[in-house]
Design a protein around this nucleic acid. Structure first.
Lengths: 147, 147
DNA sequence: TATTGTTATACTCTATAACTATA
DNA sequence: TATAGTTATAGAGTATAACAATA
């Protein structure tokens, strides 16, 4: 059971715990990405483009929870390495459509593989009986947090 | 089941999801603390002192995962409001023992109540069958992340 | 010399607001 | 005028190194 009374009696805040866990994950992730010469936010951009091009940069920025002005440095780096392309939208030339290149997808998949392996190792600490429930709960919380 | 294969097929990285969830929690938490004129890190300091005084400031800083130099602004603020006390350790006068005052404990409990209520509301989105497992898993991950 | 608390400096990151080009 | 992308400026947050007191 997880009634309000039980929850209130927990030693630590959920926020504090999440903060600690996330910090560890980010540290491990940064190291992995560093080995492939990819910055954290650049990886986030690549990952956001995985399911298809972004019609606007502002849209892309919103998708990863960033300001559109801070997205630009990432796009400059990525475009400079041929990992993404920025093409003007013929229908409205103010917009630039951002697309993943084959090289970009290749690098993304490599990074993602590294990161998934690291996360799987981390989750191995969680008793197997709770693992699926944890991931389901996280899906729900993350979905709710994006709106 | 949550086998490696299933996990690798997840749409989003766990890190990205945690990042999104934590951002939402921190935003809500900041608003609650703001209403009581308490800064986030100051709250972390109060919470860390809940189970007893800290023998050294450096120790306290490590407990909340902060640099000892950045702890000082918090302690200055808190001591200025009479929420904590910094007393020189008689055995080693280099050290300063940090203690929660009654007023500090009162404010801490009030803030904590606000935050727990907010977190409980957030967790209400998670199907009840998964809630306890999620919290158990989080306990485990957080414990592992602190070492 | 080493350690604790503290202060000072430089650096990074972030937020805000301007600028351009299109519409 | 309004919007998308971009650039520039100022502010907050962070890391690093120095400093004084004590051991």
């Amino acid at each position: 059971m997880s009634e309000p009374a039980d929850f209130a009696a927990r030693r630590e805040d959920v926020g504090a715990q999440l903060h600690r866990v996330l910090r560890r994950i980010l540290a491990a992730e940064t190291a992995l990405l560093d080995a492939r010469d990819v910055e954290m936010w650049d990886y986030a951009v690549l990952a956001a483009l995985r399911d298809g091009p972004a019609q606007k940069q502002a849209q892309l920025a919103a998708a990863i929870g960033r300001d559109r002005t801070r997205l630009i440095a990432s796009l400059d780096r990525l475009a400079g390495r041929g990992l993404v392309e920025r093409d003007p939208d013929p229908d409205d030339r103010r917009n630039r459509i951002v697309t993943l290149t084959p090289a970009g997808r290749e690098l993304l998949d490599a990074c993602r593989g590294d990161i998934r392996a690291m996360e799987a190792e981390l989750l191995a600490d969680v008793p197997e009986a709770d693992r699926a429930a944890f991931l389901r709960a996280l899906d729900r919380l993350a979905e709710r947090a994006s709106t």
